[in-house]
Design a protein around this nucleic acid. Structure first.
Length: 723
DNA sequence: GCAAGGTC
């Protein structure tokens, strides 16, 4: 029989062709197979139905999401597995009476959405191997080839990818293109520990079509929104300027860009307002001590002057309270990726992307557990003592671990954080001795080890002192200090050690002489400048993107020229501002984090049978078509604006202050807004401290915290005359 | 070439 016919037959019926089944035993097995196939079909309606992998006969192909997972599954299922390699890619085989279990893996997504059509609107796409679509995904070719080879002889397939929506899609597409979904099962596990895996493989179900459909839908929605809007933007620029430039928009990147742009606008339009602080120093034990006014600062000069006068009249302050209290500092939980990225940025100034890259390398070297996790919890099944003993073999940690084992008396119970992750635990060191690491790699590894150790250590304590003072007229002041009581976990993770500063002991009722009492003028502060890690933390907070993609998407915004960095601080560029102007007007949906919420709601509806993928995609298609029609009507205008921001053309009428196009009064949109802001701010400034307009202008001109666009306006006499 | 999502 020619191979193709056999393949067709297998696809249709499963198992091997009838004539090849000879022995009675084999015939029985064949019947069993047929029976379990019936069960799969019925399992689509009855998801509670379960089968053990050990009840299957013939060749069973188990597909993991990544090589590491495949290895763990092999270990968990049998102590007598065989490790094989094909073109360098490992796979495992287990023989057990009548069954041949083959465990192989994908490497994340092996397929992606693709179209060969140009232009927009575009809604024709299909799944294609990633190595064909994407030059940087060449490594996926070998994985596909091996899975293809193994699929040919498979009687059954088990999708053993991570138990989440993407895992369901990854496994499904492999089985769909290489095997047969009707002879496929799903295994569901939430950690890769042997005990859990063993149990999970005794509870196979049919394919989880609801999850698969939800996942496919997410891919399609992201594709049609992202590709269509990106193409529309690029086309507008090309039509106006003749230049081909890569522009893009997407469900995650665009709200992230908007967040930075909003922040940029707020900072650039910031006008500092005066604040008045009664600045008081006292003398105690010959030491000069600076006191803080209880409510920080005052808005008006008059009130502040009144307080100063009252203090000076008294000449002393009365101590109303002196307290010393011990604050308990709990150890921090082991890292999830975001926490690691934050600490690496705080301590070493690493970008989130750099930290992630290093963590991924450490993971591939088997030095740490899976880093793309949101979990702050360590699994109770982990052999903590074993890991510690191995870590003790690394020079720099030997004495640290001796101390920890002594302090804990060998009782190793880590603190657990609140955040969890369905597929992976918090990041921990495996204990394997590092080979040659670069100094940056050591820094990340060291953070992970120390944070892991700290999770087992004792609480630390902080002794906080506070003294409160009052004038005769009832104005209150205070001063505080702190020192470390017990070092506890801070010994292991010393990066969190608080600054120590002591104050003398005061006695209630005591009169303390005033050394100086002056009025100090300060100004309100602009919002802090953004950094990459702050952007990433914001993405986490509003729940867009994933552990694997957030840092990457931030870097993408830089590559597109939407953002730029100076000394670690992030700014939106003119192009970034322009993209957000255009998208807010013509595709407002994609600029909001609500789009992710909407996708999630639709995906949930699909998972619970309340919606179908096709109708959800169709609805999005209609929305996008309509928006694109609107866009096309003003395409020239948009192309004009973006081409100016890209520096491809100069505007017909330029802003008096910058190179952007005029909006009103000879100013661009942003400088016009600055003009309006200056008008408003003068009224408030005058309320706080009576002043002339000229004085106000010369003050904000000198202040460094004054926003860029404001400074540009007040620095331009011609424009200033308009006020 | 364009998204977001996996992982090498």
């Amino acid at each position: 029989m020619p191979a193709k016919t056999i393949l067709d037959y297998l696809k249709k019926h499963g198992g091997r062709p009838q004539e090849q089944i000879k022995s009675v035993k084999e015939k029985e097995e064949h019947r069993e197979k047929q029976a379990s196939r019936e069960k799969i079909v019925s399992s689509r309606r009855k998801p509670e139905w379960k089968i053990k992998i050990w009840d299957l006969r013939g060749n069973i192909l188990v597909i993991a999401e990544k090589p590491k997972a495949a290895s763990k599954i092999a270990y968990a299922l049998s102590s007598r597995f065989m490790r094989n390699r094909w073109k360098g890619i490992p796979y495992y085989t287990i023989r057990s009476n009548g069954a041949n279990i083959i465990i192989a893996s994908a490497a994340g997504h092996l397929y992606g959405l693709y179209t060969d059509k140009r232009g927009y609107p575009i809604f024709q796409y299909e799944w294609k191997p990633l190595y064909i679509i994407d030059q940087t995904a060449k490594h996926t070719k070998k994985f596909i080839e091996l899975l293809e080879k193994l699929s040919r002889n498979a009687d059954y397939y088990v999708n053993a990818c991570d138990y989440d929506i993407e895992g369901s899609v990854i496994g499904y597409l492999i089985i769909k293109f290489m095997g047969d979904p009707d002879r496929a099962y799903r295994v569901k596990y939430s950690s890769l520990t042997p005990a859990e895996l063993k149990q999970a493989f005794r509870e196979l179900t049919g394919l989880d079509y609801e999850m698969i459909e939800a996942g496919l839908c997410r891919h399609e929605l992201d594709w049609i929104w992202g590709i269509n809007i990106s193409r529309a933007l690029m086309d507008a620029v090309r039509k106006t300027s003749g230049k081909r430039t890569i522009l893009s928009a997407g469900r995650v990147q665009t709200p992230t860009l908007k967040h930075v742009v909003d922040h940029e606008i707020e900072r650039n339009l910031f006008i500092p307002l005066p604040l008045f602080i009664p600045d008081v120093t006292i003398i105690k034990n010959g030491e000069k001590i600076h006191l803080e006014y209880i409510s920080g600062s005052l808005e008006t000069r008059r009130k502040a002057e009144e307080i100063i006068k009252s203090i000076k009249k008294d000449g002393y302050l009365t101590v109303t309270e002196y307290t010393e209290k011990t604050i308990c500092l709990n150890p921090p939980p082991a890292f999830n990726l975001g926490d690691l990225q934050e600490e690496a940025a705080r301590i070493y100034g690493f970008s989130p992307y750099k930290t992630q890259k290093i963590a991924e390398k450490l993971y591939l070297d088997a030095l740490i557990s899976y880093p793309r996790t949101n979990s702050q919890k360590l699994p109770p099944t982990l052999n903590y003592r074993g890991i510690m003993e191995k870590l003790a073999g690394i020079d720099r940690y030997g004495s640290l671990i001796d101390r920890l084992l002594r302090e804990t008396r060998g009782i190793l119970q880590p603190v657990q954080g609140k955040k969890d992750d369905p597929a992976h635990p918090a990041i921990y060191p495996t204990g394997l001795k590092p080979g040659k690491l670069s100094s940056d790699e050591w820094k990340i590894y060291d953070l992970i080890v120390r944070r892991f150790l700290a999770a087992f250590a004792e609480k630390a304590s902080l002794i906080q002192q506070q003294a409160r003072f009052m004038t005769r007229e009832g104005y209150e002041f205070r001063v505080s200090g702190q020192r470390i009581g017990k070092l506890g976990w801070l010994y292991y993770y010393y990066f969190s050690k608080p600054k120590e500063k002591s104050i003398p002991v005061f006695i209630k009722g005591e009169h303390v002489p005033i050394k100086t009492a002056r009025l100090r003028r300060t100004y309100t502060r602009p919002p802090e400048r953004l950094t990459k890690i702050k952007i990433l933390r914001w993405m986490e907070r509003v729940e867009i993107g994933t552990e694997a993609t957030r840092a990457r998407i931030i870097e993408l915004l830089f590559r597109r020229g939407y953002l730029e960095a100076k000394g670690g601080k992030v700014n939106a560029t003119d192009l970034g501002l322009g993209i957000i102007e255009v998208l807010t007007k013509y595709f407002p949906q994609i600029t909001s984090v609500e789009m992710t919420r909407y996708f999630e709601a639709k995906m949930e509806a699909i998972r619970y049978g309340r919606a179908e993928r096709e109708e959800v995609v169709e609805e999005a298609r209609q929305t996008i078509v309509k928006l694109l029609q609107e866009f096309d009507r003003v395409k020239d205008k948009i192309g004009y604006l973006l081409s100016i921001r890209l520096g491809y053309i100069s505007p017909h009428r330029k802003c008096l202050v910058c190179s952007r196009e005029e909006y009103r009064l000879g100013l661009c949109y942003y400088h016009y807004m600055a003009l309006e802001k200056i008008r408003e701010a003068y009224n408030e400034w005058n309320r706080r401290e009576e002043t002339t307009f000229e004085k106000f202008i010369s003050s904000i001109k000198k202040l460094r915290s004054t926003g860029k666009w404001i400074t540009e306006i007040v620095g331009n006499d011609e424009v200033l005359a308009k006020l």
